[in-house]
Deep mutational scan, measured.
Amino acid sequence: AEKTGIVNVSSSLNVREGASTSSKVIGSLSGNTKVTIVGEEGAFYKIEYKGSHGYVAKEYIKDIKDE
């Protein structure tokens, strides 16, 4: 049951290796980017990222929809 969301930041949002603010940053997404959410862990969504997965803070994702 995948969902999509939109990155809701003015600059960019860090994509992390794990569901923690201390996890390594593996990339970033600019505002209004559409993401595919494959799961959630605590305050983070697990998303599809560059052929693999990454984690982003839930508070910066809006317009969550079921695909």
Results as ranks from 00 to 15, higher is better:
Ile47Glu: 00
Asp66Trp: 07
Thr33Arg: 06
Phe44Gly: 00
Ile47Asp: 00
Val7Phe: 01
Asp66Arg: 04
Gly51Val: 04
Ile37Met: 03
Val9His: 12
His53Ile: 12
Ile26Asn: 02
Gly31Gln: 11
Val38Lys: 05
Gly31Ile: 09
Glu40Met: 09
Gly18Trp: 12
Val7Ala: 05
Lys3Gln: 08
Ile64Gly: 06
Val35Ala: 02
Lys34Phe: 09
Ser30Trp: 13
Ile26Leu: 10
His53Tyr: 14
Ile26Met: 06
Gly54Trp: 02
Ala57Ser: 15
Lys62Gln: 10
Val25Glu: 04
Ala19Gln: 03
Phe44Val: 02
Glu40Tyr: 06
Ala43Phe: 12
Ile37Val: 05
Ala57Thr: 07
Lys58Glu: 02
Ile6Asn: 05
Val38Gln: 06
Asp63Ile: 15
Ile47Arg: 00
Ser12Thr: 15
Thr36Arg: 15
Glu48Gly: 05
Thr21Asp: 14
Gly39Lys: 04
Glu59Thr: 07
Phe44Ser: 03
Gly42Lys: 06
Ile47Asn: 00
Tyr49Ala: 01
Ser52Ala: 13
Lys65Asn: 14
His53Asn: 06
Glu2Thr: 12
Glu67Ala: 13
Lys24Tyr: 04
Val25Asn: 04
Ala1Trp: 09
Tyr45Glu: 01
Ile64His: 07
Gly54Thr: 01
Glu59Lys: 10
Ile47Pro: 00
Thr21Leu: 15
Leu13Asn: 02
Gly51Ala: 09
Glu67Thr: 14
Ile37Pro: 00
Gly5Thr: 04
Gly51Ile: 05
Ala43Tyr: 08
Ser11Thr: 15
Thr4His: 11
Lys3Leu: 09
Leu13Glu: 03
Gly31Ser: 15
Val35Gly: 00
Tyr49Thr: 02
Val35Glu: 00
Asn8Ala: 15
Gly5Arg: 04
Tyr49Asp: 01
Tyr55Thr: 00
Tyr45His: 04
Ser10Ala: 13
Gly54His: 02
Leu29Gly: 00
Thr21Ile: 14
Val25Leu: 06
Thr4Leu: 09
Phe44Trp: 14
Glu17His: 09
Ser52Trp: 09
Ile64Phe: 10
Val25Ala: 05
Thr36Trp: 15
Val7Trp: 01
Ala19Ile: 06
Lys24Gly: 06
Ser12Gln: 12
Lys65Trp: 09
Ser10Trp: 05
Lys62Val: 14
Thr4Tyr: 06
Lys65Pro: 10
Lys65Glu: 10
Lys3Ser: 07
Ser20Cys: 06
Ser12Val: 10
Lys46Cys: 05
Lys50Phe: 09
Val25Gln: 04
Asn14Gln: 12
Val15Ser: 01
Ser12Cys: 08
Thr36Ser: 10
Asp63Met: 14
Ile64Trp: 08
Lys58Pro: 01
Ser28Thr: 14
Ser23Lys: 04
Ala43Val: 13
Lys3Cys: 05
Ile64Lys: 05
Ser20Trp: 06
Val15Trp: 02
Ser52Asp: 07
Tyr60His: 13
Val7Cys: 04
Ile26Tyr: 02
Ala43Pro: 14
Tyr49Val: 03
Gly51Tyr: 07
Ser23Gln: 04
Ile26Lys: 03
Gly31Pro: 15
Asp63Leu: 13
Val35Thr: 02
Ser23Met: 05
